[in-house]
Computed example of a mutant assay.
Amino acid sequence: MDTLSEFVFPPPASAFVNVMTVVSSAIVAVVGLSEARGKHLKYSKFWSSNNANTDRKSFNLSAKLGMLVAYIPAFLAGVVSLWLFPSEDRRILLLKSALVLHFFKRNLEVLFLHKYSSKMAVDSVITISFSYFSSTAIMIYTQHLSQGLLREPPIDLKSIGVGLFLIGIIGNFYHHYLLSQTRKQGETSYKIPKGGLFSLIICPHYLFEIIEFFGFAFISQTIYSLFFAFATALYLSGRSYATRKWYVSKFEDFPIHVKALLPFVF
C-alpha cells in the first residue's frame, strides 16, 4: 500500500465510493469471466448465433437503438458535470473531458459508422447502460472527493494518462473503421476483419479500449478508476476470448496465429 500511495489518492471518506470500488469492479470482472465461459450479454454476433435458442418472449431493440441507449446516459453524466462545475482543478477537467469525448465518439460511431444486423435484448441494454453510467458518475464523484484531500499523489501521471487516452481512442476508432469496412452496404453476414492489428489479434478495438480506461485511471489517479480499469480489462479479455472462439467455430480458414487480445500471447 505504501508503494500504491505514491501513485493514487488515499481512499476518500465515503463508504459508498469504497463499497462501489469493490462491488462494481467485481461485477464487471465476473461478467467478463462469464463471457469467456460462453454466457454472453445478448448483442452482437453472440446474439445472432444464439437468437434461435433464446426466449422468444423477451423484448428486443434494434442494435443501433440499443447501443445509443447504452452510451447516452454516461455521455450526459459527463456533460452535466462539466456544466454544473465548469471552473475546477485541471485534473478533474481532463478526466471529465476525456470521458465526454469517449462516449461522444461512441455515439457518433453508432449513428454513422457501425453496420448492425442484429437485435439487442433489453436486459443487456439496461445492464450495459447502467454500468457505463454508474462508472462514469462514480469516477467523477470520486475525483471531486479526492480533490478535497490534503495531498495529491507524489508521482503525477496526468500527462501519461492523456497520452494513453489519445492512443486508445485513436486506435479504437481506426479498428472500428476497419470493422465497418468488412461488410458492404446491405450485407448481413460476418467476415474475418483485415488490416491494422487484425493481422495479429481479432479484437484490437478492445485492446485500445483497455488502453483508454487505463488513460482514465492515470488521469484520475484514484483507487476507484484503477480498479475499474483492471475490471474492464478482465471483461474485455473474456469478450475477446469468446470472440476468437466464435470466429474459429464459424470460419475454417481463420488464421490460427491470430490471437484474441495480445499479439503472440493471448
Rank of each mutant, 00 (worst) to 15 (best):
V248R: 12
I210R: 06
P12R: 07
T136P: 06
A260I: 03
S87R: 13
S14M: 02
F198I: 00
H175D: 06
P10M: 01
I128S: 09
G195I: 01
V265A: 12
S220I: 00
G186F: 02
S240V: 04
S189P: 00
L95P: 04
I27K: 10
A137W: 10
H40I: 02
A121G: 11
D253M: 00
V122R: 04
L41E: 03
W246E: 09
V122Q: 05
T54A: 14
S58D: 10
P153L: 06
A70D: 10
V100D: 10
L150Y: 07
E6L: 15
S146A: 15
P255C: 08
L226S: 13
V110C: 15
L236V: 05
I126K: 05
E212S: 13
K105V: 07
G148R: 11
S180L: 03
Y247Q: 02
F130P: 00
I223N: 12
F9Q: 05
G171R: 03
T222M: 08
F16Y: 11
F133W: 09
F266M: 13
V162R: 04
A137L: 12
V100S: 14
N50L: 09
T182H: 08
H175E: 05
E35I: 02
F230L: 15
V162C: 14
Y190M: 08
S159V: 10
Y174P: 00
G186V: 00
P255F: 08
I155M: 08
I192L: 11
T142N: 15
H176S: 10
F130D: 01
F254T: 04
P10Y: 01
P11Q: 08
K57Y: 12
F75G: 03
Y116R: 06
M67N: 10
F218N: 02
L108D: 02
S14K: 01
M120P: 06
P263D: 05
H114A: 12
W246C: 05
T243G: 05
I202L: 10
G148C: 12
R91Q: 14
D2M: 07
P11D: 11
L84Y: 08
T182C: 14
K39M: 05
G32P: 07
M1T: 07
L145T: 05
Y43V: 05
S97D: 02
L82V: 01
V122K: 06
V17D: 07
N107I: 15
A137F: 12
L76V: 14
H102C: 11
L149C: 02
G171S: 03
R56H: 13
K245L: 10
L84V: 12
V80F: 14
S249Y: 00
G32H: 05
F104Y: 11
L113I: 10
Y247F: 15
S225H: 03
F213A: 02
N18D: 04
S180C: 03
S131H: 11
T188Q: 13
I138P: 08
I169M: 05
F214L: 07
